[in-house]
């Protein structure tokens, strides 16, 4: 099957800075794909390369099999929901949404009808005559979404789509985006620095660091089987054990990850000392000293919580200790 987006050896350098560094990527059609990483990791530049706002320094980009490396943004079958929404302040909501159809030469009556339909799709009917300045943040986001979707893009790009919203609205929009994507069957690619958002919404996640993709996989892959210490630490703050400790515990000399929630207190396990204790509400986080390395443990509510300085014994299921790929060390 032709991938929706294919990167082959794509780099984008700004002077000495390698914003995107030799990236290979395949996004499947109809996929909800997340690009996750800290700021400056190259994820937004990748999105801008797909949109056409940036040209790669080297490498090639295909969109549904079409070589697109040098195609300008206005001739790509992709649309973008911008982080600041970038709604046109001089146009009302209907004209904002109908903008793409207007420049494509669609007649006034038809494009206004399409705009109405799309506004209903994003659950914002009846706001057509308002100016963007008269809308709330959540409403603006829906307009931005409708303005992109009305053009029936093959790929929808979302740049930190929920970043400007408050927590409650963010959770609601996560659900809506997910069901919208299922309903439309369009490939969604979204950029986020929030690992929770990426894990809960995406079919697959690419984790970026320093312009390179560290790992691509399903949220379960990324979470349970991180391939590099960076992925383990960035996604869900896993314990990253040194190769020396991993060798003693599992017999393999490589970095290993151990999820804090998969560790139990168990009299027959490895001895460790409690260094700090933090009450988090639903759980308690202990920081232990295990053979000179810091290991954090998440104890569910109701468990017996040892005091700071106590000697404890810990164990975990054999598959909880995940030995990572040594290539990226």
């Amino acid at each position: 099957m032709t991938p929706a987006v294919r990167f082959r050896g794509v780099s984008r350098h700004f002077g000495e800075v390698r914003a995107v560094d030799n990236v290979d990527l395949d996004v499947a059609p109809g996929e909800f794909f997340a690009m996750l990483g800290p700021s400056g990791s190259g994820k937004t530049t990748c999105l801008r390369l797909i949109a056409g706002f940036e040209r790669p320094t080297s490498g090639s980009i295909e969109i549904f099999g079409e070589p697109s490396t040098n195609i300008p943004p206005y001739r790509r079958p992709v649309n973008t929901v911008f982080q600041d929404y970038a709604l046109f302040p001089h146009l009302n909501v209907t004209d904002n949404v109908a903008f793409g159809l207007m420049v494509a030469g669609v007649g006034k009556a038809e494009r206004e009808q399409e705009a109405q339909k799309t506004l209903e799709l994003v659950a914002l009917p009846g706001f057509g005559d308002r100016k963007p300045s008269q809308l709330s943040g959540g409403q603006r986001q829906r307009v931005a979404l409708a303005r992109a979707l009305v053009n029936k893009p093959k790929v929808l790009l979302l740049d930190e789509p929920l970043g400007a919203l408050d927590l409650k609205l963010r959770e609601q929009m996560q659900e809506e985006l997910k069901s919208l994507q299922r309903k439309l069957g369009i490939t969604f690619i979204f950029v986020t620095h929030d690992q929770g958002e990426a894990l809960s919404m995406a079919d697959r996640v690419a984790v970026f660091d320093h312009g390179r993709i560290q790992q691509v996989g399903t949220p379960e892959d990324i979470y349970d089987r991180p391939q590099t210490p960076f992925v383990a630490d960035f996604v869900g703050s896993s314990n990253v054990l040194s190769p020396q400790l991993a060798e003693r515990l599992a017999g393999v000399r490589a970095h290993a990850s151990l999820r804090p929630e998969s560790i139990r207190l168990d009299a027959g396990g490895h001895a460790a000392t409690v260094v700090t204790r933090n009450f988090l509400g639903a759980a308690t986080r202990l920081t232990l000293d295990l053979d000179g390395e810091k290991v954090s443990v998440l104890l569910p509510k109701g468990a017996d919580v040892p005091a700071t300085g106590d000697r404890v014994h810990i164990s975990w299921d054999a598959d909880a200790l995940h030995v990572m790929d040594t290539r990226n060390d």
């Binding site: 943004p73 001739r75 649309n79 600041d84 970038a86 793409g100 207007m102 420049v103």
Partner: peptide, 22 residues
């Protein structure tokens, strides 16, 4: 905002249309 111009091009407007409409 500079993203207005990018938004216009993203929505299919060429340079002239972007100047004229945005």
């Amino acid at each position: 905002s500079g993203s207005l111009i990018e938004a216009s091009m993203d929505l299919g407007a060429n340079a002239f249309q972007t100047f004229r409409h945005v």
